[in-house]
Each structure stands twice: as structure tokens, then as C-alpha cells.
């Protein structure tokens, strides 16, 4: 089974984010960048399918050269190959543009399953997987929390967490899946894995290599534009309730009922 996993490099969710003064982006100085957590789960899903059915796991990313590090992490987890599309003409591209670039790469690779994270923790848009399925003409199942591939590897039955319950969906392969973090527990890259990943070559492609132009996928083709980033409002200071236990409990109950309206 040939599996393609899409990977994005994002700021560590625990790193403090500073927005550039003009609001056009985030200040990357000193920022820790990691593989998007959801993509770790996607990589894990791919590796488990390979363990079950044999075949290969190929990682694909679109991003600046530094995104190579995120791919290196996936290789160290055990993926076979990695491709990075890096092209300055992609600055300002929107999600549909990125999905088209990913589709162009994946069309050149054998793929029985394409696996993406449900979303990336930086943009929170959750659009790439769905758009990519359309561009590839594949059936899709998004937000997969449980994955069962039939013994012959011809399709999957998946559980999707939906409001108030579970939706069970069947998709024939080749298919595109986007995965929830509850799907699995990603493995740590092993030390031998890290040493092997060091020796692997990460292919870097430009738009030209893919037969695409900036006009088709770059900022000119973008159908949304970023207006401004702004930091969340500062958190208000907590309130300390004074008095003995009885009074304090009464005050907290009153607060939960009347002000927070959660009771």
C-alpha cells in the first residue's frame, strides 16, 4: 500500500507568538517550529498501514526551506521518503493554492491513501484535506477518529466524531483521510530512525518542476486575502473570593449562576 502523508511545519503551540508590528504575519525570531501535531497522527496512521500492508509512506510538504526539519521528523518516525515544494512564488498563496500544489505532487506519486491532519494548529482552517480530495478526485473522510482498513486493503470504514455521536463512513481506496488527534498515539522518532533520516535526501521542488505557475497558485490566484493578525485580548485578572467557607461557596455559586451563567 502506498501512502502519502501531508505535513506542515508550524510554530510550537507552547511557544509564545509575537505578531509583526504591521499585523501581516508572526515574528519568527527565536520561534520553535515543529511538525503540526495533527500531522504526527497522520504520519503514525500511515506508518501503521505500512506495517499492516507493506508499501511506502511518502511525506509531502509545501513551505519554506526550513520546513525540511518537519519532514526530517517524519522520516525519523519511519517514513520512507519526503518531498518539499518550496518556492518564493507561493508567498501569500491561500489554502486552495496550497492544495493545488499538493495535488500536483501527489499526482506524480502512487497513492492508495492520502492522509492529512484534520487541521493545522497555526491557521485552524481545516480546508486543505477537503480541497485536496477534490483536486485529486478522491473520495474523502474527514476528522477520522477510528480507522479500520479491510484485510485486502481495498477500502476503509472510519468513525467520525460528530456533534453528539459517531458517524460511521465507508470509503473505497484510493481515498483521502484527515485525522483527529484521538486516532492514535504517535510514536517518538527513534535514535536509529534519526540517524537513518539524516542520511535520506529530501527532494525539493519548485512550481516550475511541477508545471505550475504563480498565476495559477500564488497570491494572484488567491481567493482570500489576509487582512490583519492581532493578538488575543489580555486575560483579565482572576478574582479572589474572601470570607469563610460558607460565604465563599455562596459567592461562587452566585457568580456561576448570575455572571458566568453556567449553572
Amino acid at each position: 500500500m502506498n501512502i502519502v502523508v501531508c505535513v506542515k511545519q508550524v510554530p510550537d503551540t507552547e511557544a509564545p507568538i509575537r505578531i509583526t508590528p504591521d499585523g501581516s504575519g508572526i515574528d519568527e525570531t527565536g520561534l520553535t517550529l515543529v511538525m503540526n501535531y495533527y500531522d504526527e497522527h497522520a504520519t503514525e496512521a500511515g506508518l501503521r498501514l505500512r506495517e499492516q500492508f507493506g508499501g511506502t509512506v511518502t511525506l509531502v510538504s509545501v513551505g519554506p526551506e526550513r520546513a525540511r526539519e518537519a519532514l526530517r521528523t517524519g522520516l525519523a518516525m519511519g517514513a520512507d521518503d519526503a518531498v518539499l515544494v518550496s518556492d518564493p512564488a507561493l508567498n501569500g498563496a491561500d489554502h486552495l493554492g496550497i492544495a493545488r500544489v499538493l495535488a500536483a505532487v501527489i499526482k506524480t506519486l502512487p497513492h492508495d491513501a492520502v492522509i492529512c491532519g484534520k487541521l493545522s494548529t497555526d491557521d485552524n482552517a481545516a480546508t486543505i484535506g477537503a480541497a485536496l480530495a477534490e483536486y485529486l478526485g478522491l473520495p474523502q473522510a474527514t476528522a477520522v477518529a477510528h480507522l479500520e482498513v479491510d484485510a485486502a486493503g481495498t477500502g476503509a470504514v472510519v468513525h467520525r466524531e460528530v456533534e453528539g455521536g459517531v458517524e460511521v463512513v465507508a470509503v473505497p481506496f484510493p481515498a483521502l483521510l484527515t485525522v483527529e488527534r484521538s486516532l492514535n498515539e504517535p510514536r517518538y522518532p527513534s535514535l536509529p530512525g534519526i540517524m537513518k533520516a539524516k542520511r535520506k535526501e529530501i527532494k525539493i521542488l519548485t512550481l516550475e518542476n511541477l508545471g505550475l505557475t504563480a498565476a495559477e497558485v500564488g497570491v494572484a490566484a488567491a481567493r482570500t486575502a489576509l487582512v490583519r493578525l492581532s493578538p488575543p485580548p489580555a486575560r483579565k485578572a482572576g478574582r479572589i473570593v474572601e470570607g469563610d467557607t460558607e460565604q465563599a461557596v455562596a459567592a461562587i455559586l452566585a457568580f456561576l449562576k448570575d455572571e458566568a451563567k453556567v449553572l
Partner: peptide, 10 residues
Amino acid sequence: TDEHRMIQAT
């Protein structure tokens, strides 16, 4: 090296 840092972080 990059590998040292990756091993350390892991």
C-alpha cells in the same frame, strides 16, 4: 549538530 538537537529534543 542538527542530529544532536533532534535527539535531544526527542
